[in-house]
Computed example of a mutant assay.
Amino acid sequence: MEAPMSRLVTNDKSQVQVIARAATILRALEDENAGLSLGQIAQRVNLARSTVQRIVAALETEKLVIAATPNGRVRLGPTIMRLAASVRSDFVSLARPFLERLSAELHETVDLSTVKKDHLVFIDQVVGSQRLRTVSGVGETFPLHCTANGKAYLAQLSDSAVEALIGRSYEARTARSITKIDTLLNELKVVRRIGVAFDREEHTEGICAAGVALHDPLGNAVAISVPVPSLRFANQANHIAERLLATKRALEGRMNASAA
């Protein structure tokens, strides 16, 4: 005998709810290298501890989470790490032709970075063809408040979220660095309006940059930036901004087509 339609619909909703809750728990464990207790997870995701315990047990079976300490704390497991690494590698491969095209158009270096809490990590780079050019190593980290790619990311957040993430005062990397939140928030208003952020010798003297932010297929924040020696930047800033926005639109269109 076939199951009643109402029962099938209820079961489907229940299964979707479990998946959504599992995803919320996994997100709560992101960047928690020391792990969280079941009680801490329950508080963060606003679920009953018993519900968290059941879902965590299922995730442990698949090694999506593993024990972090003998006293019950858990952290992300090797399975989720492999999946994330695979998606990140796929995204870098997907983005690479767009970075190469942008670099060829501008004859400048193009960087791809991802956001890790309150800093950026460079994950790919296409070196420009100019003799005088800027190069940063893949894997290097940079602050958010004084970089073009960092400010492009911050502009996607609310003002309160910016303050919660990086505080109200910041290190001066150069004489041009923004060091107070009010000044930064005023600049982020402009970035939200035009879609591009600028670093005018705020991180490193002699180097300017423009950057845009977007999200990879997993929803992780990433940014594309073009660093340029200050001598060339003033005359190229508007053109670089236009090409960055065009590259962002093209890459987002490619990701949307892949997901369809």
Rank of each mutant, 00 (worst) to 15 (best):
Glu171Cys: 02
Ala172Phe: 01
Ala172Arg: 13
Ala172Cys: 03
Ala172Glu: 04
Arg173Cys: 11
Arg173Leu: 04
Arg173Lys: 15
Arg173Trp: 10
Thr174Asp: 09
Thr174Leu: 00
Ala175Thr: 15
Ala175Ile: 14
Arg176Lys: 13
Arg176Gln: 13
Arg176Leu: 03
Arg176Glu: 05
Arg176Val: 08
Ser177Leu: 03
Ile178Ala: 04
Ile181Tyr: 12
Ile181Lys: 06
Asp182Arg: 08
Asp182Ser: 01
Asp182Met: 10
Thr183His: 11
Thr183Gly: 06
Thr183Ala: 14
Leu184Met: 01
Leu185Cys: 03
Leu185Ile: 14
Leu185Arg: 11
Asn186Ser: 15
Glu187Met: 00
Glu187Cys: 12
Leu188Phe: 02
Lys189Met: 08
Val190Ser: 12
Val190Asn: 14
Val190Glu: 14
Val190Lys: 13
Val190Cys: 02
Val190Ala: 13
Val190Trp: 01
Val191Leu: 02
Val191Ala: 06
Val191His: 07
Val191Met: 04
Arg192Lys: 12
Arg192Met: 03
Ile194Val: 15
Gly195Cys: 07
Gly195Tyr: 08
Gly195Ser: 00
Phe198Met: 11
Asp199Thr: 10
Asp199Arg: 06
Asp199Asn: 15
Asp199Lys: 13
Arg200Val: 12
Arg200Asp: 09
Arg200Leu: 14
Arg200Thr: 14
Glu201Gly: 10
Glu201Phe: 01
Glu201Tyr: 02
Glu201Trp: 13
Glu202Lys: 11
Thr204Glu: 14
Thr204His: 07
Thr204Ser: 13
Gly206Met: 03
Gly206Pro: 03
Ile207Thr: 10
Ile207Arg: 04
Ile207Gln: 13
Cys208Thr: 14
Ala209Val: 08
Ala210Thr: 04
Ala210Leu: 02
Gly211Ile: 04
Val212Phe: 12
Val212Ala: 11
Ala213Asn: 01
